[in-house]
Design a protein around this nucleic acid. Structure first.
Length: 634
RNA sequence: GCCCAUGUAGCUCAGUCGGUAGAGCACAUCCUUGGUAAGGAUGAGGUCACCGGUUCAAUCCCGGUCAUGGGCUCCA
């Protein structure tokens, strides 16, 4: 008779006195593994449970369960690769978000055909249902084992371990160093798919050898795998680079340069709509708007510290009349210069300067990616100058403002991160401490849950980053709020306090959208190219049935255009089905068909891009309906 | 920057085991004037990314460059 406590997340703990009873429960609950006294363990450890052990089931569909499942899949994949390519050296193969990978060192390159072959080999392994057998041995035993097996990466991993005993798992003779736990046998793996091959440095260090990484994913239910693969397809369909081309929004050009965006007319009008909105909101929120130059003397950047701390992202200086100039990677020094054109008083605080400032930063060629990662971009930047005791209020103000702007774009789900002092930092640690606390207090006041990201702050101060979730649930970092007590010092900024003496202001940098390029890239994917009316490049397409309807349709288009609607006339020599199709493919929100009926009745039906018809509306009703939807930004 | 893959008409892609290329869509002209996701015909469009090498001959083979994509790393 044993006494085992089975604990569960819902609080319904149970005493179990029979190991077979526990095994039954484990099956019922579709466990991936268990936790014994808080430590995760394989299911086949259950028979050796001791009296008064506390057991918790890790279900397959929990995050931890999925991790175990995928980790086991990655072992099977490594085994399959080793079978097919005996001279491969295996490196490391963890589970990751939505899947797993395994890194291999091999003299040939894996091709997509290889992936299919490896998948087949995995199936062969899985169908034999070999158990995952856990082994323990001393470090030196394990070390010599892997040396004998010709696995230098495993040896290196073992050397980095601190424990005296290490654990290994064996499936069908294939031994891998692994902490575990694992599924009890490979046969439990039912739905998996290898997705891609890519290069990856050993331990992520570019000084190390480049290995080949195979990415894959696995699910305990085939339907979940299918759902995930459909999700990947949906991501592809929404890819902003693809939609940007299809909808004629932007391009990049070899002759001009990588990472430099050409905004086409359709993309520019989206951008202009966002910029207009942005400026209006900033004026309403008591910001003052600035315009500043694109280059400045190198000396300025030396003074600001960018040349010391940010040089690897800056372009080489250019020579102007024997003086070195730099294209700007940031806007802050310019805003500081504006601040310093007068003696400032605490009475004007907080001073909030905002600018849509275009900056240029060097990015390694391999990281450039459509609109999301570019070399020239426009920040929706602002700098707030205030007293240290105003930080908290200002952060609150910025948070409110940011969240309301993000909400306009349908982002009302987000995660917040607080980044603290990094290794390379400037300024006294006490000020870091105080301003980090001010950020914390503001977040707490707003009751915003946040995660601390230790050491991820900028060199000049702590920051709050906001990651929004798009319509597919993916996270994007756009907004950032950064405290800076370094630049006011460097530029000897002052303000006259109520005591008549000069004091040092605090500076807050913030961007809501981050960069317009990136933000619009995110928006394209978020909306899948089907922009809300206020952002749509063409808001309404008016199409004629026959040539005799052209004059009436033209009048209507002219009238709407005069009233600010972005409307296009399609009076081409085509059938109405063709015109509808074109307008739908371009994701134009509304279409109006003008035929005999409309010309005689002076009423129109409005066709939404999803095919639904609403109406009929008189021309005035149509106009006010459109204007209302544009104004409310729905 | 590094590893791998890719670069053919405006777009999406075929193709040539070395003898200077083809489809669909888009575009132009003509016919058709048709009521809610593709009417028909005809036509125009390409130094096959760029530079060099091998060859009688290169879009194809080789080398380099640039760009794009998947990653590593970094970040707005």
């Amino acid at each position: 008779m044993v006494h085992i406590k089975l604990v569960s997340k819902d609080g319904k703990d149970q005493e179990i006195h029979d190991v077979s009873e526990l095994e039954k429960r484990v099956k019922e609950r579709k466990a991936a593994a268990v936790k014994i006294n808080g430590h995760s363990a394989d299911l086949n450890r259950i028979p050796s449970l001791k009296d008064s052990d506390i057991v918790e089931i890790i279900p397959l569909d929990s995050d931890e369960g999925k991790e175990i499942y995928r980790h086991s899949t990655s072992h099977v994949m490594a085994y399959a690769v080793k079978n097919l390519f005996p001279d491969v050296r295996i490196a490391i193969g963890p589970s990751i978000q939505d899947g797993f990978y395994y890194d291999f060192d091999i003299d040939r390159t894996f091709t997509p055909d290889d992936l299919a072959t490896i998948e087949k080999q995995m199936q062969t392994i899985i169908s034999k249902n070999p158990p995952f057998v856990r082994k323990e041995m001393t470090r030196s035993e394990a070390r010599s084992l892997f040396e004998k097996l010709g696995e230098p990466y495993k040896v290196e991993l073992i050397d980095a371990l601190k424990d005296d005993t290490v654990t290994l798992y064996e499936i069908d003779g294939f031994i891998d160093l692994c902490r575990g736990p694992h599924l009890e046998s490979a046969g439990r793996i039912t739905a998996y798919k290898l997705l891609s091959v890519a290069g990856a440095y050993w331990k992520g260090d570019e000084n190390n050898k480049m290995l080949q990484r195979i990415y894959g994913t696995s699910f305990s239910k085939a339907s979940d795998l299918k759902k995930y693969l459909l999700f990947l397809e949906e991501i592809k369909k929404r890819d902003h680079r693809r939609l940007g081309k299809e909808l004629d929004l932007f391009s990049v050009n070899d002759e001009i340069g990588a990472g430099l965006i050409l905004w086409h007319p359709k993309g520019s009008i989206i951008r202009k709509s966002i910029e207009d909105f942005w400026r209006n909101e900033h004026l309403l929120a008591d910001y003052q708007i600035l315009y500043t130059p694109h280059i400045a003397k190198l000396k300025l950047w030396e003074k600001s510290g960018h040349w010391d701390f940010y040089r690897e992202n800056m372009y080489s200086p250019m020579d102007i009349d024997n003086v070195a100039y730099e294209v700007k990677p940031m806007n802050c020094p310019f805003h500081i210069a504006v601040y310093k054109t007068a003696i400032r008083s605490y009475r004007e605080f907080p001073v909030r300067y905002a600018e849509l400032g275009t900056v240029y930063r060097y990015e390694k060629s391999g990281v450039l990616h459509g609109l999301l990662r570019v070399r020239g971009f426009t920040q929706d930047d602002a700098h707030i100058f205030c007293r240290e005791d105003q930080i908290e209020d200002e952060i609150l103000h910025v948070l409110d403002f940011t969240l309301s702007v993000l909400k306009t774009f349908g982002f009302d789900d987000y995660n917040v991160f607080l980044s603290t002092m990094p290794e390379k930092y400037v300024g006294p640690p006490e000020i870091w401490e105080r301003s980090t606390n001010a950020l914390k207090r503001a977040l707490n006041e707003k009751k915003i849950a946040y995660e601390v990201d230790p050491g991820a702050g900028v060199f000049y101060g702590p920051k709050i980053d906001i990651k929004v979730k798009d319509s597919l649930g993916r996270q994007w970092q756009c907004s950032t709020i950064q405290v800076d007590f370094n630049n006011p010092e460097r530029f000897d900024m002052t303000f006259r306090g109520s005591d008549g003496r000069n004091h040092r202001p605090i500076m807050i940098h913030r961007a809501l959208m981050g960069s317009l390029e990136r933000f619009i890239g995110v928006l394209i994917e978020h909306y899948g190219g089907a922009f809300p009316l206020w952002l749509s490049p063409v808001q309404l397409s008016v199409m004629t049935i026959a040539d005799r309807h052209r004059a009436y349709a033209q009048t209507m288009v002219d009238t709407l255009k005069q009233r600010g609607i972005r409307v296009e006339l399609d009076a081409e020599n085509e059938k109405i089905g063709n015109k509808i199709r074109k307008s739908t493919k371009r994701k134009i929100p509304y279409a109006v068909v003008i035929g005999d009926k409309e010309t005689s009745e002076a009423n129109v039906m409005l066709r939404k891009r999803n095919g639904e018809n609403i109406g009929p509306f008189s021309p005035e009703e149509l106009l006010s309906l459109l204007q209302d939807e544009i104004n409310t930004k729905k």
